Amino acid sequence: MGFKLLSKLLVYLTASIMAIASPLAFSVDSSGEYPTVSEIPVGEVRLYQIADGVWSHIATQSFDGAVYPSNGLIVRDGDELLLIDTAWGAKNTAALLAEIEKQIGLPVTRAVSTHFHDDRVGGVDVLRAAGVATYASPSTRRLAEVEGNEIPTHSLEGLSSSGDAVRFGPVELFYPGAAHSTDNLIVYVPSASVLYGGCAIYELSRTSAGNVADADLAEWPTSIERIQQHYPEAQFVIPGHGLPGGLDLLKHTTNVVKAHTNRSVVE
């Protein structure tokens, strides 16, 4: 069995187990497998329904001669939608809004960016022009300005110390501490036991640490421990890039980060 097929099978099995364990909360999309990078042309966006009122959005972007996937989250909030992270750029984010209108038909009224990198804030200006209120932590807003990236308009308070959590509509926002970046936030959907790890969490097929220019490698494993301790009931975990899975993604990420750190020390 090929690795790609095995990865998709694991996603399907995880979703099936969740649907059985929580039949009222989960209505997993039966329309197909989780979209992969090879299936999404740059400039297009796919939506994948995880649970009743919960979707991931998947886009792709060219970077350094390669094409990478990027995940975000959409959560229903009454007759409105909360968006977590842009679709990595203005063109993708405009396509995301169009796809949401086509498939869901509810307005996106608020959006949260989970850290300051372009795959999370690139497209904020498109959201703002569409009347979406954009939010991020003060740290993310400051770092985005320093980096020359787009800056969300509103500040999220109460997320300055490791372990801080605040309720934001249908989700809980959690600051686990520094990891992929010093400002990275985690998003949890309690009604569906869905954990969105953003770039602080890796997919299972990833074996290298990737972009760690703004990471705190020493603190990252401790931050992941905080996530595990705060959300032990999480059933569906979405990484910032690639295929979702279960809580095993947290341990896998820790292993990859520690291996990278150990290699760096040896070198």
Rank of each mutant, 00 (worst) to 15 (best):
residue 217 L to D: 02
residue 8 K to G: 08
residue 152 P to M: 02
residue 48 Y to C: 07
residue 153 T to W: 09
residue 56 S to I: 15
residue 7 S to Q: 10
residue 59 A to W: 03
residue 241 H to L: 02
residue 68 Y to R: 03
residue 147 E to V: 14
residue 151 I to F: 08
residue 257 V to A: 03
residue 87 A to S: 05
residue 11 V to E: 07
residue 87 A to Y: 00
residue 155 S to H: 10
residue 229 Q to G: 12
residue 133 A to L: 13
residue 20 I to W: 11
residue 123 G to H: 04
residue 134 T to S: 07
residue 179 A to Q: 00
residue 156 L to Q: 04
residue 21 A to M: 14
residue 8 K to P: 05
residue 137 S to I: 08
residue 9 L to G: 11
residue 263 R to N: 15
residue 79 D to Y: 09
residue 120 R to F: 01
residue 8 K to V: 15
residue 138 P to R: 08
residue 211 N to R: 03
residue 75 V to D: 04
residue 55 W to I: 00
residue 36 T to F: 10
residue 212 V to F: 04
residue 52 D to F: 10
residue 195 L to F: 07
residue 54 V to Q: 04
residue 181 S to Y: 05
residue 188 Y to A: 02
residue 65 G to N: 10
residue 257 V to G: 02
residue 39 E to W: 10
residue 156 L to R: 04
residue 252 H to V: 03
residue 13 L to M: 12
residue 188 Y to K: 02
residue 139 S to L: 11
residue 143 L to D: 02
residue 115 H to C: 00
residue 178 A to D: 05
residue 134 T to A: 04
residue 3 F to K: 15
residue 226 R to G: 04
residue 77 D to L: 02
residue 159 L to S: 04
residue 67 V to N: 15
residue 212 V to A: 07
residue 249 L to D: 02
residue 189 V to G: 01
residue 225 E to N: 09
residue 15 A to F: 15
residue 25 A to F: 11
residue 21 A to D: 15
residue 38 S to F: 11
residue 246 G to F: 05
residue 262 N to H: 11
residue 97 L to T: 04
residue 193 S to P: 05
residue 240 G to I: 07
residue 199 C to F: 02
residue 25 A to V: 12
residue 100 I to T: 07
residue 18 M to E: 14
residue 168 F to K: 02
residue 170 P to D: 02
residue 230 H to L: 10
residue 88 W to H: 00
residue 251 K to W: 11
residue 120 R to Q: 03
residue 187 V to I: 09
residue 266 V to M: 14
residue 113 S to F: 05
residue 59 A to V: 10
residue 148 G to F: 06
residue 115 H to A: 00
residue 152 P to L: 03
residue 9 L to D: 14
residue 70 S to F: 04
residue 112 V to M: 07
residue 144 A to M: 04
residue 89 G to Q: 00
residue 198 G to Y: 02
residue 177 G to Q: 03
residue 157 E to P: 10
residue 178 A to V: 07
residue 25 A to K: 15
residue 149 N to P: 06
residue 250 L to Y: 05
residue 150 E to C: 04
residue 11 V to I: 14
residue 225 E to A: 13
residue 225 E to D: 14
residue 266 V to N: 11
residue 196 Y to D: 02
residue 110 R to P: 06
residue 102 K to F: 03
residue 141 R to H: 07
residue 82 L to T: 08
residue 250 L to C: 00
residue 94 A to V: 13
residue 10 L to K: 12
residue 264 S to A: 12
residue 162 S to W: 09
residue 69 P to N: 15
residue 244 P to S: 04
residue 91 K to R: 14
residue 154 H to V: 09
residue 267 E to T: 07
residue 258 K to A: 12
residue 99 E to Y: 09
residue 261 T to L: 12
residue 250 L to D: 03
residue 266 V to Q: 13
residue 265 V to R: 11
residue 30 S to W: 08
residue 178 A to H: 10
residue 232 P to K: 14
residue 190 P to S: 09
residue 149 N to I: 07
residue 163 G to E: 08
residue 176 P to G: 02
residue 143 L to N: 08
residue 195 L to E: 00
residue 82 L to D: 00
residue 3 F to L: 08
residue 155 S to D: 13
residue 130 A to Y: 13
residue 154 H to D: 08
residue 235 Q to T: 09
residue 263 R to C: 07
residue 189 V to N: 03
residue 7 S to H: 11
residue 221 P to M: 08
residue 128 R to W: 07
residue 99 E to M: 13
residue 195 L to V: 04
residue 198 G to K: 00
residue 217 L to P: 07
residue 94 A to Y: 13
residue 43 G to C: 04
residue 127 L to N: 01
residue 59 A to C: 06
residue 48 Y to G: 07
residue 26 F to K: 15
residue 89 G to M: 00
residue 81 L to H: 02
residue 21 A to R: 13
residue 54 V to F: 03
residue 159 L to Q: 00
residue 84 I to Q: 00
residue 139 S to M: 13
residue 90 A to T: 10
residue 242 G to P: 02
residue 138 P to H: 10
residue 201 I to W: 02
residue 220 W to E: 01
residue 239 P to M: 01
residue 115 H to Q: 01
residue 48 Y to F: 13
residue 257 V to R: 02
residue 116 F to D: 02
residue 15 A to H: 12
residue 126 V to R: 06
residue 28 V to A: 12
residue 106 L to V: 11
residue 74 I to S: 04
residue 201 I to E: 02
residue 8 K to S: 14
residue 21 A to L: 12
residue 72 G to V: 02
residue 237 V to Q: 01
residue 245 G to T: 03
residue 8 K to D: 15
residue 210 G to P: 03
residue 111 A to G: 09
residue 152 P to I: 03
residue 105 G to Y: 09
residue 25 A to Y: 14
residue 213 A to M: 14
residue 29 D to W: 12
residue 197 G to K: 02
residue 147 E to D: 09
residue 45 V to E: 03
residue 28 V to D: 10
residue 138 P to A: 08
residue 48 Y to N: 15
residue 19 A to I: 15
residue 257 V to N: 06
residue 75 V to K: 03
residue 135 Y to W: 10
residue 195 L to Q: 01
residue 111 A to L: 08
residue 50 I to C: 03
residue 46 R to Y: 11
residue 36 T to H: 12
residue 114 T to A: 02
residue 252 H to T: 04
residue 190 P to I: 06
residue 28 V to N: 11
residue 163 G to M: 05
residue 80 E to T: 10
residue 231 Y to H: 05
residue 225 E to F: 12
residue 26 F to E: 15
residue 164 D to M: 11
residue 47 L to P: 07
residue 16 S to W: 15
residue 174 F to A: 01
residue 168 F to T: 02
residue 151 I to V: 12
residue 5 L to K: 15
residue 121 V to I: 08
residue 84 I to D: 00
residue 224 I to R: 01
residue 222 T to R: 11
residue 53 G to Q: 12
residue 26 F to C: 10
residue 241 H to T: 01
residue 3 F to Q: 06
residue 232 P to N: 09
residue 28 V to Y: 13
residue 172 E to G: 02
residue 254 T to K: 12
residue 26 F to I: 12
residue 220 W to I: 04
residue 108 V to D: 01
residue 215 A to W: 03
residue 54 V to W: 03
residue 245 G to H: 04
residue 204 L to E: 15
residue 46 R to S: 09
residue 190 P to R: 10
residue 109 T to Y: 09
residue 128 R to P: 06
residue 267 E to K: 12
residue 151 I to D: 03
residue 57 H to Q: 05
residue 232 P to S: 10
residue 106 L to Q: 11
residue 78 G to F: 07
residue 149 N to M: 15
residue 195 L to M: 06
residue 232 P to M: 08
residue 172 E to C: 03
residue 174 F to P: 01
residue 97 L to R: 00
residue 66 A to S: 12
residue 95 A to F: 15
residue 55 W to D: 03
residue 256 V to G: 02
residue 257 V to F: 06
residue 159 L to N: 01
residue 171 V to C: 02
residue 120 R to D: 02
residue 128 R to V: 11
residue 235 Q to S: 11
residue 126 V to K: 05
residue 15 A to P: 14
residue 171 V to Y: 03
residue 210 G to T: 01
residue 192 A to M: 09
residue 58 I to A: 06
residue 34 Y to W: 15
residue 132 V to H: 00
residue 226 R to E: 03
residue 212 V to G: 04
residue 200 A to D: 02
residue 65 G to M: 08
residue 140 T to Y: 06
residue 175 Y to T: 01
residue 4 K to R: 06
residue 24 L to W: 06
residue 38 S to M: 13
residue 176 P to L: 04
residue 63 F to P: 01
residue 110 R to Q: 13
residue 19 A to E: 15
residue 233 E to H: 12
residue 51 A to V: 13
residue 229 Q to H: 14
residue 229 Q to V: 13
residue 50 I to K: 04
residue 196 Y to S: 01
residue 202 Y to E: 05
residue 52 D to M: 08
residue 129 A to H: 11
residue 258 K to N: 13
residue 241 H to A: 02
residue 118 D to H: 09
residue 125 D to F: 05
residue 213 A to D: 10
residue 242 G to R: 04
residue 159 L to F: 05
residue 119 D to T: 00
residue 152 P to N: 02
residue 20 I to L: 11
residue 86 T to P: 00
residue 265 V to H: 11
residue 214 D to E: 05
residue 224 I to W: 02
residue 182 T to K: 13
residue 129 A to K: 11
residue 135 Y to M: 03
residue 26 F to P: 10
residue 160 S to F: 09
residue 94 A to K: 13
residue 13 L to V: 15
residue 72 G to R: 03
residue 53 G to R: 10
residue 197 G to W: 01
residue 216 D to Y: 05
residue 108 V to Y: 00
residue 154 H to T: 11
residue 205 S to Q: 07
residue 170 P to Q: 07
residue 29 D to S: 09
residue 4 K to P: 06
residue 58 I to E: 06
residue 194 V to D: 00
residue 62 S to W: 06
residue 169 G to C: 06
residue 183 D to A: 01
residue 134 T to N: 02
residue 186 I to F: 06
residue 263 R to M: 15
residue 99 E to F: 08
residue 249 L to F: 06
residue 70 S to V: 03
residue 157 E to G: 12
residue 184 N to D: 05
residue 216 D to T: 08
residue 31 S to A: 11
residue 215 A to I: 02
residue 244 P to D: 00
residue 210 G to A: 06
residue 125 D to C: 03
residue 261 T to Q: 12
residue 149 N to F: 15
residue 173 L to H: 07
residue 141 R to I: 10
residue 227 I to D: 02
residue 235 Q to W: 08
residue 169 G to F: 07
residue 119 D to C: 01
residue 59 A to E: 08
residue 94 A to G: 11
residue 7 S to C: 14
residue 13 L to C: 15
residue 33 E to H: 08
residue 150 E to F: 01
residue 236 F to P: 04
residue 114 T to S: 07
residue 91 K to V: 15
residue 108 V to W: 02
residue 47 L to K: 03
residue 46 R to P: 04
residue 221 P to Q: 08
residue 12 Y to G: 09
residue 199 C to I: 00
residue 169 G to K: 04
residue 254 T to P: 06
residue 30 S to Q: 12
residue 175 Y to C: 03
residue 63 F to R: 05
residue 40 I to L: 15
residue 124 V to N: 03
residue 200 A to G: 03
residue 202 Y to N: 07
residue 44 E to S: 13
residue 102 K to E: 12
residue 77 D to M: 02
residue 175 Y to E: 01
residue 23 P to E: 09
